[in-house]
Deep mutational scan, measured.
Amino acid sequence: MAAAAAAGAGPEMVRGQVFDVGPRYTNLSYIGEGAYGMVCSAYDNVNKVRVAIKKISPFEHQTYCQRTLREIKILLRFRHENIIGINDIIRAPTIEQMKDVYIVQDLMETDLYKLLKTQHLSNDHICYFLYQILRGLKYIHSANVLHRDLKPSNLLLNTTCDLKICDFGLARVADPDHDHTGFLTEYVATRWYRAPEIMLNSKGYTKSIDIWSVGCILAEMLSNRPIFPGKHYLDQLNHILGILGSPSQEDLNCIINLKARNYLLSLPHKNKVPWNRLFPNADSKALDLLDKMLTFNPHKRIEVEQALAHPYLEQYYDPSDEPIAEAPFKFDMELDDLPKEKLKELIFEETARFQPGYRS
């Protein structure tokens, strides 16, 4: 834990890192770190609560700039109880001085990944967590956004079992017609939660990839272990087919990539493993919904509104309290091709509203 900075004593240090967030945020305490930044909790002297502050230093890398800009653009436009918001952003007053960006968010005690390492969940908890994931996802999908990296560590939890989806750095506007060349190379989302079509096709992607990830998360809540822990690309596919069985001819016809289709045709026939054999203690309604989410063919996979209306979630289902976005989200430009200098300018502009004396 960093010592509390005395008023006016300059930035606090946390594990050798400068955290320049005073005077409003003090009493910093280390939480963890990701690929390009550290997260601390801090005391907000204005709202009198502890908050989470993520320090991001992305400006050396085009990919990190892209992810940072995506996350900020999306989260500043989203407003939903099951999606983490941005409360404040701290950065230098000029673009030349801006080396880091500090993002202030609600402090959540833990995440689903940490929880599943230590606790076996009751059916009631599984049901409530799944409902909140789908409630947040309904809003995301209504904005025409794909999260693309749903996994237990991106689901934040607090002691009252509130759940918030975080990390929109890989999110995209849904565009089933656009052929994202190089899709697989830039697709760094965790393999275990990846839909089979991501490994088999490169053309376009749809909201059904997020539903697949939610199915993987439900299976993990039922058993405290990942359902498809593939060691590499082909191993991942083999794990999936080992449980779902061989795809039907109709399902194979959806695979545009001939090499991928021929690979699947070359494999020995596998039978589907019954879900109640894998999860003998699970609620039968939970397994019915799991089956509809972990469907090989993305066109037959359940959609988020149908999933919310499934009998497993009937005690929570309330369409009048499951809000959607006001308007579909649009990125003005494809960020993939922009140089990091341009992305830095866009991050600077996007964060201006939090600067003292800002006038829109």
Results as ranks from 00 to 15, higher is better:
338 L>P: 11
35 A>S: 01
178 H>W: 08
344 K>M: 00
319 P>H: 08
149 D>F: 05
243 I>A: 13
249 Q>M: 10
85 G>L: 14
64 Y>I: 04
114 K>C: 06
280 P>F: 07
209 I>M: 04
73 K>H: 06
240 I>G: 06
55 K>S: 09
347 I>Y: 05
34 G>A: 03
233 Y>Q: 03
334 E>V: 01
70 R>V: 05
83 I>D: 12
285 K>C: 11
150 L>E: 03
140 I>V: 08
29 S>I: 03
190 T>N: 02
241 L>H: 12
173 V>G: 03
74 I>T: 08
211 I>Y: 03
88 D>P: 09
300 K>S: 09
164 K>A: 09
236 Q>M: 05
62 Q>D: 04
116 L>C: 10
256 I>M: 07
95 I>K: 12
329 F>N: 13
98 M>V: 15
61 H>W: 13
238 N>C: 07
216 C>D: 04
200 L>F: 10
321 D>K: 14
69 L>C: 10
85 G>P: 13
22 G>F: 10
295 T>S: 00
163 L>P: 03
229 P>Q: 09
354 F>S: 04
168 F>M: 07
237 L>N: 04
181 T>C: 07
190 T>A: 02
195 A>C: 04
136 G>N: 06
302 I>Q: 02
107 L>S: 05
323 P>R: 13
191 R>W: 07
158 N>V: 07
318 D>Q: 13
61 H>M: 13
12 E>G: 07
18 V>K: 09
269 H>Q: 04
17 Q>F: 12
109 E>P: 14
106 D>E: 00
271 N>Y: 02
265 L>D: 09
346 L>D: 06
240 I>W: 09
175 D>A: 00
281 N>I: 00
99 K>F: 09
197 E>I: 02
202 S>N: 03
331 F>Q: 14
42 A>Y: 15
186 E>K: 01
328 P>H: 00
8 G>R: 07
116 L>G: 11
357 G>S: 05
283 D>E: 00
58 P>H: 01
121 L>W: 08
169 G>I: 11
154 N>G: 03
251 D>M: 07
137 L>S: 04
32 G>F: 07
39 V>M: 02
231 K>E: 08
6 A>F: 15
282 A>D: 01
102 Y>E: 07
332 D>C: 14
260 A>L: 11
222 L>N: 08
195 A>E: 01
218 L>I: 06
86 I>Q: 08
21 V>S: 04
214 V>L: 04
188 V>E: 03
6 A>T: 03
110 T>Q: 06
157 L>Q: 01
198 I>E: 04
305 E>P: 15
291 D>Y: 00
305 E>G: 13
303 E>S: 11
194 R>T: 04
27 N>F: 13
7 A>N: 14
188 V>H: 05
108 M>D: 02
185 T>F: 03
108 M>T: 07
223 S>G: 07
192 W>S: 02
177 D>F: 09
58 P>M: 15
205 Y>P: 04
34 G>D: 07
187 Y>E: 04
282 A>F: 15
223 S>N: 09
4 A>W: 13
25 Y>E: 03
195 A>T: 01
173 V>R: 04
19 F>Y: 00
33 E>K: 01
114 K>R: 01
133 I>D: 03
349 E>A: 15
247 P>N: 09
40 C>Y: 07
266 S>A: 13
23 P>E: 15
360 S>I: 07
99 K>D: 04
157 L>T: 09
233 Y>S: 00
241 L>E: 05
150 L>M: 01
146 L>M: 07
228 F>L: 00
57 S>R: 12
188 V>P: 07
178 H>I: 08
354 F>R: 06
156 L>C: 07
236 Q>N: 06
165 I>K: 04
235 D>L: 01
293 M>C: 12
206 T>M: 02
33 E>V: 06
